[in-house]
Amino acid sequence: MKRTIFCLAVMIITLFMAMTIVVAEINPPQVGGVFPEIDLLKPNNSVDLKYLGLSGSGSFKVSQVKTEVVIIEIFSMYCPYCQGEAPNVNKLYASIENNPAFKNKIKIIGIGINNSLFETDIFKKKYKVEFPLIPDGDFKLHKIMGEVRTPYFIVVKLKGGKTEVIYSRLGALGDINVFLGQIAKLSGLQ
């Protein structure tokens, strides 16, 4: 009898632990939560490195970007919707860079799911993307971020080395002025 109870307990604990892991992994970063401490590959060009306020090679974390807000686009070079959304995200980038209230306070990075550096570079060149695109060739980052569909946008507020997710949503941005206004309000920039 004791053995049966012990076995049942092992089963329940195992199932519970598995469910906990799965729930933690399948959910994208939630608004109000902390952004995962993922290691991103540093860009291999000085322009992108300077944009992020970084130097050298290796990896970096979102919290290390020299800014107050980071907009993260989860995309893939192979995703038709991401291809269609690229001009709109470029407009967003331009709106930020051309607005003194936002320049240097909001940065954008793209994470290319299951894309090699070669593939993210093709996307960058094809759509004339001026912000850094980071490859996630082996789905490692994608798994941590809840295996979201693409494009998916996450906005992270940075303060004192800490991160707070203020926006997390699947799909195109729509009107970038509306989106930017929303982000400015949520982040406290305006």
């Binding site: 076995c7 092992v10 089963m11 195992t14 199932l15 598995a18 799965v22 893939s76 192979y78 995703c79 038709p80 919707y81 991401c82 799911i113 299951n114 789905f139 994608h142 798994k143 295996e147 569909r149 693409t150 494009p151 699947l170 799909g171």
Partner: peptide
């Protein structure tokens, strides 16, 4: 019976993330 939880876990993780585009 003990094998069952392991099987459940395997089945959950066996679903790979493909055809990512929301298209």
């Amino acid at each position: 019976l003990l094998f069952l939880p392991a099987l459940v876990i395997f089945c959950i993780f066996a679903q790979s993330a493909c055809a990512l585009s929301d298209a």
